[in-house]
Simulated assay, not measured.
Amino acid sequence: MRSDRLLATLLLLQAHGRLPAPEIARRLEVSTRTVARDVEALSAAGVPVYAERGRLGGVVLMPGFRTDVSGLTDAEMRALLALGDDRAGALGRDLASAARKLLAAVPEARRPDIVRARRTVLVEQRGWRRTGEDPDDAVLAALERAVAADERARVRYRDEGWSTVDPYGLVSKAGTWYLVAARRGEPRLFRVDRVREVGATGVPARRPDDRDLAQAWAALRDRLDEAPDAVVVRVRLPDDRRAMLERVVAAQLVGPPEPDDEAGVVRLPFRAPGAAVGILLGFGAGVEVLDPPEVRALMATRAAEVVDLYG
């Protein structure tokens, strides 16, 4: 549409100030005659743009001219400025940078009220008592590239070695980044701060279904939310057994394992107390349940029953 092309021309001139007509034509994939007509239309609409002849000539926008070409309302600009946080990792910094560039396109008269959002509204992405680490920027950027390219990726998750995953996308929840991806044909959540390395494959992603990111995330989130008997069990175990434990109990968890403030302790969100006891008893004295008290007591009861049975 011509209106879109006029807007694109104006954006190019606001970014560069002066451009040769052939360069504008090349970028917009039109003829130089079309560019000349568009410049005339912009000038007739009151935009101070004109053509200069000669070797150094071109299409020129009067220095200092700015118009609000973003189409954003004041409320939308305030929301972007509040959400953009330079401390929120690479993507947060990109959002903050984009918001500042949009603000530069806003007329001077509108800016004071919008900028006030930086002083009066703060969006804190992290939850209370957060114990996880921030994701590595290089890891997050590599995952973002794989998602954008819709490619299969290889990830080294915690101490489990390398795994091949087919990404649905990335989700930020309460300041924690998750990769939603299929592993061995089953959609799963991977905490990005637990991913140590990412390897590109160049192979298209092959997910087990045609759900998009929002649908896959909703299913995984609902599975966590709809487990009324779910219980978080704190267990102590040697570091060299942690990876094996997490692999064995994975099918009975409603969320990813979490590190605890206490060294050598991990928090496991089981579907139900019985599921926790049934699987943890198999580790014998190699795993100690610390709490909750009801699970610890149930472990003792079941262990006593086994002793009575086998003597």
Rank of each mutant, 00 (worst) to 15 (best):
R152M: 02
A153R: 08
R154C: 09
V155K: 03
R156S: 11
R156Q: 12
Y157R: 00
Y157K: 02
R158I: 06
E160N: 10
E160L: 13
G161K: 02
G161V: 03
G161M: 06
W162K: 10
W162V: 15
S163R: 15
V165R: 02
D166T: 08
Y168R: 01
Y168K: 00
G169I: 09
L170S: 05
L170A: 03
A174K: 10
G175D: 05
G175M: 07
G175H: 08
T176C: 06
T176V: 13
W177S: 01
Y178W: 02
V180G: 11
V180A: 07
V180Y: 05
A181G: 12
A181W: 11
R183H: 15
R184L: 09
R184T: 12
P187E: 08
P187V: 01
R188E: 14
L189N: 13
F190D: 04
R191V: 07
V192P: 10
R194E: 14
R194C: 13
R194D: 14
V195C: 10
R196V: 13
P204L: 07
A205P: 00
A205G: 00
A205K: 00
R207E: 12
R207T: 05
P208K: 05
P208W: 09
D209S: 12
R211N: 06
R211Y: 08
L213N: 01
Q215T: 14
R221W: 11
R223P: 00
R223T: 07
L224G: 15
D225P: 01
E226H: 14
A227D: 00
A227K: 06
D229C: 02
D229K: 11
D229F: 05
A230Q: 12
A230W: 08
R234I: 06
R234G: 02
R236C: 02
L237H: 00
L237Y: 05
P238A: 15
D240Y: 05
R242H: 02
A243Y: 04
E246V: 06
R247D: 14
R247S: 12
A250H: 14
A251L: 11
A251W: 12
Q252T: 11
Q252L: 12
V254M: 04
P256I: 01
P257I: 02
P259F: 04
P259L: 05
D260Q: 08
D260F: 04
D261V: 15
D261Q: 10
E262H: 08
G264H: 09
G264C: 07
L268A: 01
P269Y: 01
F270T: 06
R271V: 08
P273F: 04
G274H: 14
A275W: 04
V277W: 08
G278W: 10
L281T: 06
G282P: 06
G282I: 05
F283S: 10
F283D: 07
F283T: 09
G284W: 03
G286T: 00
